[in-house]
């Protein structure tokens, strides 16, 4: 069962001399929920950008299900089953919640086959239930630009579920959420875990402890440590990396 689904091998990303990633080795097993933490500028978001194709590697190799995706374009990477949630919630503001979900349901991506689809198709009726799951069922006709910040976060998570990728990359999904909302997100992620592989970048340690089995700590473009929450908290190197910020629990 424990097969490595995603493997990053010695990945380096160079932004005009600044090594955002510096020989990063990172792998995630199928069905795992992996949390990625680290101080600001550690390269967490860049790591996600590399996986989903937003940024190209300077050197190194990214494999998904034993196939190289290093040189694929964004939409090709999405089609083989990788979905991404962005740090700044990115939804389609001038479309309604329902239309957002419909666009995200992207089993068929060609222009012509979508030209003859009007209204919700049979497969897409499940989208209404999806809206219920994130508590937006009353807002299906509301333009996404009018939702509150928390609701927008929820909508983007729902979009990813609609897209139904094998691997979901989440960049700070609970930013701007209330305590209760964060807790509900944790519940949702634990549900998703069985069907999808998740990589979650998060600052909120409470949330990380609630959901994560294995935590990877990044520092200066590399993996610094990997282990359970307890192991990480006792790791001396991690403590040093978070120097000045009062330790990992306050990060």
């Amino acid at each position: 069962m424990n097969t490595e689904q995603l493997v990053l091998k010695n990945v380096t990303v160079n932004f005009n001399g600044f090594h955002a990633l510096d020989g990063l080795d990172f792998s995630v097993d199928k069905g795992e929920l992996r949390c990625l933490i680290g101080p600001n500028g550690a390269g967490k978001t860049t790591a996600l950008d590399i996986i989903c194709g937003k940024t190209k590697v300077t050197s190194g190799e990214v494999d998904f299900e034993s196939k190289s995706i290093t040189s694929l374009q964004e939409h090709q990477i999405a089609r083989i089953g990788i979905g991404r949630k962005f740090q700044i919630p990115s939804v389609f503001q001038d479309l309604t919640v329902r239309e957002n979900l419909q666009v995200a349901y992207s089993e068929n991506t060609s222009v012509l086959s979508n030209l003859f689809k009007f209204g919700l198709s049979k497969d897409e009726e499940g989208l209404n239930e999806l809206a219920e799951m994130v508590n937006l069922q009353e807002h299906l006709d509301v333009l996404a630009g009018h939702l509150s910040h928390g609701q927008t976060q929820w909508l983007e998570i729902a979009l990813l579920v609609a897209q139904n990728p094998k691997l979901i990359l989440m960049d700070e999904p609970t930013a701007g959420m209330t305590r209760q909302e964060t807790h509900k997100t944790a519940e949702l992620f634990l549900q998703l875990k069985s069907k999808h592989t998740l990589v979650v970048v998060e600052h909120d340690m409470g949330f990380v402890k609630e959901i994560g089995d294995v935590i990877s700590v990044m520092h200066q473009g590399k993996i610094l440590a990997e282990g359970t929450a307890q192991e990480i908290e006792q790791n001396a190197a991690v403590r040093d990396a978070y120097l000045g910020s009062g330790g990992i629990t306050n990060a």
Binding site: C52, E74, A78, G83, D94, E99, N100, T109, Q163
Partner: peptide, 15 residues
């Protein structure tokens, strides 16, 4: 319309 609103985001859905 999604492309008009947020071109980059649409790519990550596979279009």
């Amino acid at each position: 319309q999604a492309v008009r609103d947020h071109e980059d985001r649409v790519r990550y859905f596979g279009y």
